[in-house]
Computed example of a mutant assay.
Amino acid sequence: MRKTLTASAIAALAAFYGQAASAAEAGDFSFTTGLDYSSGKYGGTQSTDILYIPFIGKYETGPWSFKLTVPYIRVTGPGGVVKDIGAVKAAGTERTTESGLGDVVAAATYNIYGSTGANPLLIDLTGKVKFGTADENKGLGTGENDYAIQADAYKTIDQFTAFGTVGYKVFGEPVGISLDNVFYGSLGGSYKFNPQTSAGLILDLRQKATAAGAPQKELTAFVSHKIDKTWKAQGYVLQGFADGSPDWGGGAMVSYAF
């Protein structure tokens, strides 16, 4: 399973973090936090519920931006679901709850192209390292480092911004689990209703990471609002369409620019 605040994950939300420069106009450093909650059966008979609370620092200088995510994660379910991968082993029958530090993620982004004017085009190249800091014995992670590279493009036409991502992720190899490297991507758009408020949709896709696993496919709807020059907030809901994704999810984030 991919968290949208990545990894999804966040993100993973491509629109929120890809357009974070608009929230950081007041300075070079921004801090983001919030919560993400998701629930899914991942091809099983019982649901796995995940609470994910990230603490994200971002520094921008010229065409470069650097981001560090330190998350707290709580997983309730029958076991067998590992963050970022999906169901990789037979689940148990007794529901348990485990919590603790999640996988710390460091990312560096370089703006390789940026046009100016009323309808700009931006293209970014990003490298990511996911450190295996989550406790694998609790099922919070694999205990291994993962690596990813991705390209993001944003094109604005009047009040509408289209954006897309293409990436490739290399998994570390935990003991007893065979993982395949995967391609992933997203496609979406946002509409700016006024200078403060925008809303949009994001479709996320990813190949399955294990032979017995499932690909990921999920749709996220979001609303973003600039409270003032330093504060930005966003809420979102998520619907999964594959066994590798949560059945549903949602969350809220707030960002402060120094």
Results as ranks from 00 to 15, higher is better:
K3N: 15
K3C: 14
L5C: 14
S8W: 01
A9N: 13
A12E: 12
G18S: 13
A20H: 09
S22Y: 07
A24C: 09
T32L: 06
G34P: 04
D36F: 03
Y37E: 07
G40A: 01
T45R: 06
L51P: 02
Y52F: 12
Y59V: 05
P63V: 01
W64L: 13
S65Q: 11
K67M: 12
L68K: 05
V70L: 14
P71V: 10
I73G: 06
I85T: 08
I85Y: 01
V88M: 04
K89G: 08
K89R: 14
A91V: 05
E94L: 13
T97S: 04
S99E: 03
G100P: 01
G102Q: 09
D103N: 15
A108W: 07
Y110P: 06
N111L: 00
G117F: 00
I123N: 00
K130T: 13
F131R: 02
E136I: 13
K138C: 06
G139K: 00
L140D: 01
T142N: 05
G143H: 06
N145W: 07
Q150D: 15
D152L: 08
A153T: 04
D158E: 13
Q159S: 15
F160M: 10
V166Y: 06
Y184M: 12
K192V: 12
N194T: 14
I202H: 08
I202P: 02
A209V: 09
A211V: 14
A211H: 11
A212D: 12
A214W: 11
P215E: 15
T220Q: 06
F222T: 02
S224W: 14
K229C: 11
K229N: 15
W231L: 15
A233W: 13
A233F: 15
Q234F: 11
L238V: 06
D243G: 03
G244D: 05
S245V: 04
G250V: 02
M253K: 15
S255Y: 08
A257Q: 00
F258K: 03
